[in-house]
Design a protein around this nucleic acid. Structure first.
Lengths: 217, 217, 217, 217
DNA sequence: GATGAATGAGATTTCATTCAT
DNA sequence: AATGAATGAAATCTCATTCAT
């Protein structure tokens, strides 16, 4: 029998988002989307609020009805995608827990590049933000990329530590492993962003192969 | 009698730099030095001409007597150090030519990090410039980092190609090797610049070990 | 049968305000009240339409249904209270007509401060408006404070002129009397508004004493 | 005999202000002057930086080379004139110390109006600043008028207290005396600023007469 | 050749007012 | 009639570059 008894009269209250609110979200999302593109295309420092508004098809004032200022707009963007990315990683690591180390790393790398392929503009912003001095123009956003970088870094550290303890990885200079792996990952992402070579899953697999087994014959 | 004897004897070697000219170079060099520091400390977009001049101990106007504009100043900087860096690489590769692959890579990596340790500010600029959109603020400088990146990349490509042909490296996805190696190198540099861990030569050795032999036991 | 009997009896007095209209006035009045507070608290130039609407519990759009623009809102406010104030003065002067000069002035001063105590926010606005340049932001309101000031001033002038003619006041510089008296009154009001000392009727009496008899022993 | 002995050769070192510096002061002063006028004419809130610069005959950027921001410009103005005004008061009170009360008050009032006549625009600004909410637009300037007001107020309080102790003034409500006197003074100033009647010294004398002896016959 | 004040285009942000729903 | 999101003109401030001294 259906839970919605025909007699019962309280309409299934669920997601009745009021119309106004739906519009609001639509617009906020459109603005965020334009911002993501413009930030990625023009670079964090040449991305002007006017450009973002224009691309979103709204007036500047409208943009400011949704985001307190340019900084807040970037911060919102970085945070939303950052949360998503971290969640993917946690999921990937969890789902591969207990499996062979190669599987675990593979899951990690795949999670990274799946997200990358789906959100290239975000990655461009993120990678730029890693080294650029943002404190001046984006006081609140400045700390966010490194925040998420740390989260991811720690997950990787844990993974490597367990592998070292299980004698699956050599112990010498084990503290470098996260840096080396992430360095290679970043490099493939940059390779793709610079239009040298579109990323393919086999590249990720090869990355893991090299990391674990080396490139030598 | 004129000093310019018609017969002979413009001293062929010593390039007798006139005093005036020596001064010029002194000043130009002081300005470039300050620029390097300021660009590195403040980031490419927050480095103001005024700051650079102040640190060099000259007036802004003076700076403009030596460099056409901010872009030209950065370009000069990037070019000078870039030439130097490429030269080091050529030398390293040449000196290791014919030796074992590990030696060759070691020489390459060492050349990179020796230069890095000697010129951290330059690397900070270079790494920032790799991903930041410079076209707007620095139209002429924008292409320079990637120019030198390419030169280095090609040297590495050649090295790897020869190793592949000599069956020293696995052939599958060999085109990724330069990206992977440079990615790890960059990552260790960033690790140092971010004050996580000062670079030590053993790290470079470990990097080569992992690249060739893998991290797995 | 229709309720509107053809025969008679539209009650001749009570100006039967239709319900709809009564609502309108209610809302208009609520808005004006909020405006009075906000104008007083934030100052004429930092009082934003949005704040006023929010405090009144209506949307900005609603506010604009009742008042043509910000200027009109302020003007309405100034006019309404201004009329009231002038009426009080007329009444005070009329009721004291023929009495001793001291009584007359006492009535005048009391009328002023009674109104002040009942309407501090209005006075804050009024006093601010006396010297601030309003022409730009409030073209229509700008003239209103001085209009009522003039009305009051003239009443006082008349009062003084009669007293001078009756040889109750010294004639020299008699034209200054209204300025001097109003200046002292304003000053006590400001003293209260600035939270130095809450106004008490005895202060008004003392003011009259000083004005008529001087402060000297 | 002249102090500049023809023999002595150290040039009388005094005020050799370098040329550059003299120009700087000239410009700073021109800007401050324009600011004073514009602030007075347009009112504190409609005085735009652009207007000030234009009237001073410089570009906006120039203005910002001399004053950190609009607030700083106003603050400098208020402070400079404020210091001057307070000094005049101190001098006036000191020079009249020990004389009859009427002389003392006369000196005080004269000092006020002498300064007023010489600096009407400043007074307009000052009087406007007394009641306008400046905190938002001029965070640093906001406190300055009341600061100087306090200084002057205290001088007057002291003067009155001594007079009360010497039984020269009635003791009842003596705390109101500064408010009443300053209120009348302000009122005459406003009367002049509003173009009703240009201030004349006899008005000040009359003010003191009324304050001490009352207006009544 | 050195100096540093002047310049002004250009970027961000605010907020009174409008108007479709 | 009420709503509140959209609008965009206008204001402040920055800073690379110029140029008279």
């Amino acid at each position: 029998m259906s839970r919605r008894s025909p007699v019962a009269s309280v309409p299934p209250v669920a997601p009745v988002v009021p119309l106004r609110e739906r519009f609001r979200r639509e617009v906020a999302s459109a603005i965020a989307g334009s911002a993501e593109e413009v930030f990625a295309e023009q670079g964090l420092h040449s991305a002007h609020v006017g450009d973002i508004a224009r691309r979103a098809g709204v007036a500047v004032g409208t943009l400011y009805n949704y985001y307190e200022d340019r900084d807040a707009l970037l911060a919102a963007l970085l945070r939303e995608r950052g949360e998503e990315l971290v969640a993917r990683f946690e999921q990937a690591i969890a789902s591969a827990a207990g499996k062979a180390l190669k599987k675990q790393l593979g899951a990690f790398v795949d999670a990274y590049f799946d997200f990358f392929v789906a959100h290239r503009p975000y990655f461009k912003i993120l990678l730029e933000g890693e080294l650029t001095q943002l404190q001046d123009s984006y006081p609140r956003s400045a700390a966010i990329p490194s925040h998420y970088h740390q989260l991811i870094f720690r997950q990787l550290e844990g993974l490597f530590q367990r592998a070292v303890e299980a004698r699956q990885l050599r112990v010498a200079h084990a503290d470098l492993y996260p840096w080396l792996l992430l360095g290679m990952m970043r490099s493939l992402a940059v390779c793709d962003l610079r239009k040298h070579k579109t990323y393919e899953p086999s590249s990720g697999a090869q990355l893991v192969n090299v990391f674990l087994g080396g490139a030598a014959v």
